[in-house]
Amino acid sequence: MTEFTPYLSLFGGTLIGLSAVLLMAFHGRIAGMTGILASLLPPFSSDWTWRAAFIVGSIVAPALVLMSTGQAIGYASPVPTPWLIAGGLIVGVGVYFGSGCTSGHGVCGMARLSPRSIAATAIFMATAVATVFVVRHVLGGF
Rank of each mutant, 00 (worst) to 15 (best):
T14W: 06
L15P: 11
L15A: 07
L15V: 12
I16D: 00
G17Q: 00
G17T: 00
L18I: 14
L18E: 05
S19C: 12
A20W: 00
A20Y: 01
A20T: 08
V21R: 06
V21H: 02
L23P: 10
L23S: 03
L23I: 12
L23W: 05
M24G: 11
A25I: 11
F26G: 09
F26N: 11
F26P: 07
H27Y: 14
H27C: 12
G28S: 12
G28L: 09
G28D: 09
G28F: 10
R29K: 15
R29P: 10
I30W: 04
M33R: 02
M33S: 11
I36Y: 01
L37W: 08
S39N: 15
S39M: 13
L40N: 09
L40F: 03
L41C: 12
L41W: 08
P42I: 09
P43T: 02
P43S: 02
S45K: 14
S45L: 08
D47A: 10
W48K: 12
W48N: 09
W48M: 13
W50F: 14
W50M: 10
A52D: 08
A52F: 15
A53W: 11
I55H: 00
G57Q: 02
G57K: 01
G57A: 02
S58T: 12
I59M: 14
V60S: 05
P62I: 07
P62G: 04
A63F: 14
A63P: 01
L64R: 02
L64P: 08
V65G: 02
L66V: 10
M67Y: 07
T69I: 11
Q71W: 05
A72E: 13
I73L: 15
I73Q: 07
Y75G: 06
V79D: 04
P80T: 07
T81P: 10
L84F: 07
I85A: 11
A86L: 15
A86Y: 04
A86H: 01
L89T: 05
V91E: 04
G92V: 08
G92N: 03
G92W: 06
V93H: 00
V93N: 01
Y96E: 09
F97C: 12
F97P: 09
G98R: 04
S99R: 15
G100Q: 03
C101E: 08
C101H: 02
T102M: 06
S103E: 05
S103C: 10
G104A: 00
H105D: 06
H105S: 09
G106Y: 00
G109K: 00
A111F: 03
R112F: 06
L113K: 06
P115I: 05
P115E: 03
S117Y: 00
I118C: 06
A119Q: 09
T121G: 00
I123W: 05
F124T: 04
M125E: 05
